[in-house]
């Protein structure tokens, strides 16, 4: 059993508390805009968790996409809501909702408790053990920049040189995305485009023959402008 450093523990618990705390604010806060900001905080907590787990690429992307872009868009969209501070009214049938929520929570808890999580002792790969127990060897490049050893991009298998340890997961993620899961990647891309177009369609003015109507309206506006020349 390896000893997880106190610092990692502190960071983990801090980030977890942040994530859950902000998530709690999201569901309890009436003000939708505040909820959106709290959601951003929750996303940030998740990003920090990724950092704690040494998945810094995922962590950075989490911040870039979720906090930097999606939260902004959410906050932006919230501004289109009629009455932001009042939030949505309580839904009918709260009991049903509460029951469903409790059931899902129970299911998740059950799974978490019942799963046989692999422990440190189950890991046999010497490199992974080395990484996790911090018993690896650093390789300097001779320059002042010390570089952790990465896998060459050509292979998906992680090759470790000189007994170092892989720290940079970026290359590996990239290789996986465009080699093994390229189809899934592309399909997600397509899905996002479809969602974008769908969103635009939903935002369209639902008037009769909207475009022609809009043009006619514009013409009418122009005429009124011309007629009332002065204020």
């Amino acid at each position: 059993m390896m000893e997880v450093s106190t610092l990692t523990n502190v960071a983990f618990w801090g980030a977890s508390t942040m994530t859950l705390g902000f998530a709690l604010i999201v569901v309890t806060q009436r003000d939708v805009f505040r909820a959106a900001i709290a959601l951003a905080g929750s996303f940030l907590g998740v990003g920090i968790l990724y950092f704690v787990l040494s998945a810094e690429f995922v962590g950075v992307v989490q911040i870039l996409v979720y906090v930097g872009a999606i939260s902004v868009l959410m906050a932006f969209a919230v501004m289109f809501i009629q009455d932001v501070t009042a939030g949505s009214r309580p839904v009918q049938g709260r009991l049903v909702g509460a029951t469903m929520g409790a059931l899902i929570l129970a299911a998740v808890a059950f799974t978490a408790v019942n799963t046989e999580w692999s422990t440190m002792d189950d890991i046999t790969d010497p490199i992974a053990v080395a990484a996790l127990t911090e018993g690896y060897v650093e390789i300097g490049t001779g320059d002042d920049t010390t570089v952790a050893i990465t896998a060459p991009a050509e292979t998906t298998e992680l090759v470790i040189e000189n007994g170092g340890v892989l720290v940079d997961s970026t290359g590996a993620v990239g290789v996986l995305l465009v080699r093994e899961y390229v189809l899934a990647f592309e399909i997600i891309g397509l899905l996002l485009v479809a969602a974008l177009i769908g969103g635009l369609l939903l935002m369209r003015n639902p008037g009769p023959g909207s475009e022609a109507a809009a043009e006619a309206k514009e013409d009418a506006d122009a005429e009124t402008v011309g007629s009332e020349a002065s204020v």
Binding site: D221, A222, V225, G226, E228, A229, S230, V231
Partner: peptide, 10 residues
């Protein structure tokens, strides 16, 4: 200034 509306609207 009287043509302000014509200048600005649109």
């Amino acid at each position: 200034l009287t043509l302000l509306r014509d200048m600005l609207i649109g």
